[in-house]
């Protein structure tokens, strides 16, 4: 509890180390208490700045676990995780998380503007009120996600797509370098999905990196530069066009393809 006390709101004094991966995972084994086998075992994984990585695999494959370990929602049990060259959790500013929808209390009475402002809290800390620069960042983020007209609405009144725009706007206001999105596309309309990816692609032109967990294999070739198939360990990892094969999908999801060795048409984009 004490280290967390000291991290919240403290100015980040550990600058990104140049020419290091955005994310580096080494020898990580993670086991939920009471479970016989590890939920996740990763020998070595590197994500470079500018990469857009799709995290794919069946339920229970460890996609969320990996995201939680990087965001600090689960404690590292063994191995090491580095973010832009610094140990995980040493700099909360650098990692932003869009959690799964179900972990958020959408009925809680907050406005869109208040939620987007939560992205600035990491820069403020205990008891500090938002400054002008924070309000500007929030306005900018809402404009980018095309939700400025919803600013004073309650988040509970919005559609699933609008809510997801709010969450990404919060992440933009956070101004992190490594973005983690845990199944952000569930219950999202096509227009929002396009906007989300457009914004993510823009971010990755700079030095940022994005990791998105998804079940929607159809979007992989269009929106990602790399696919990482997980099933408690890395099954396949590489450029989407190389990795997205019938064999990989069958291995990751544990089933046999019935239509021969070729993917159905929708997967080839």
């Amino acid at each position: 509890m004490l280290p967390q006390l000291s991290v919240y709101g403290k100015a980040c004094d550990t600058p990104a180390i140049e020419h290091t991966p955005a994310l580096e995972v080494e020898q990580v084994v993670f086991r939920y208490s009471g479970m016989p086998r590890p939920a996740l075992e990763i020998d070595s994984l590197r994500v470079m700045p500018g990469e857009r990585v799709a995290l794919v695999g069946p339920n229970g494959a460890g996609k969320s676990t990996l995201i939680k370990l990087v965001a600090g929602l689960e404690k590292l049990q063994s191995g090491e995780i580095h973010v832009y060259g610094n140990p995980v959790l040493s700099c909360m500013h650098r990692v932003a998380l869009v959690p799964q929808r179900s972990t958020v209390d959408w009925q809680f009475p907050v406005t869109v503007r208040e939620v987007v402002m939560m992205g600035r809290y990491v820069h403020l800390g205990w008891g500090k009120r938002p400054r002008q620069e924070d309000r500007d960042a929030v306005d900018e983020a809402m404009k980018r996600m095309e939700i400025s007209n919803l600013a004073n609405r309650q988040v509970g009144e919005l559609s699933g797509g609008q809510q997801q725009r709010v969450m990404l706007a919060r992440t933009l206001a956070h101004d992190a370098d490594l973005l983690l999105l845990d199944e952000p596309l569930n219950h999202v309309d096509v227009a929002t999905q396009e906007l989300v990816f457009h914004v993510l692609e823009d971010l990755c032109k700079k030095t940022k990196a994005v990791i998105v967990s998804t079940h929607d294999l159809g979007i992989l070739p269009v929106h990602f530069s790399r696919a990482l198939f997980l099933d408690r360990q890395v099954i396949a990892d590489g450029p989407v066009e190389e990795v997205l094969t019938a064999q990989t999908i069958a291995r990751a999801y544990g089933f046999e393809f019935h239509g021969g060795e070729s993917l159905s048409k929708w997967l080839n984009g």
Binding site: Q4, L5, Y8, G72, L73, L97, P99, V104, Y121, V122
Partner: peptide, 9 residues
């Protein structure tokens, strides 16, 4: 979840 991710318990 966001709260933990920004170091606020």
């Amino acid at each position: 979840g966001h709260s933990v991710a920004i170091g606020l318990s």
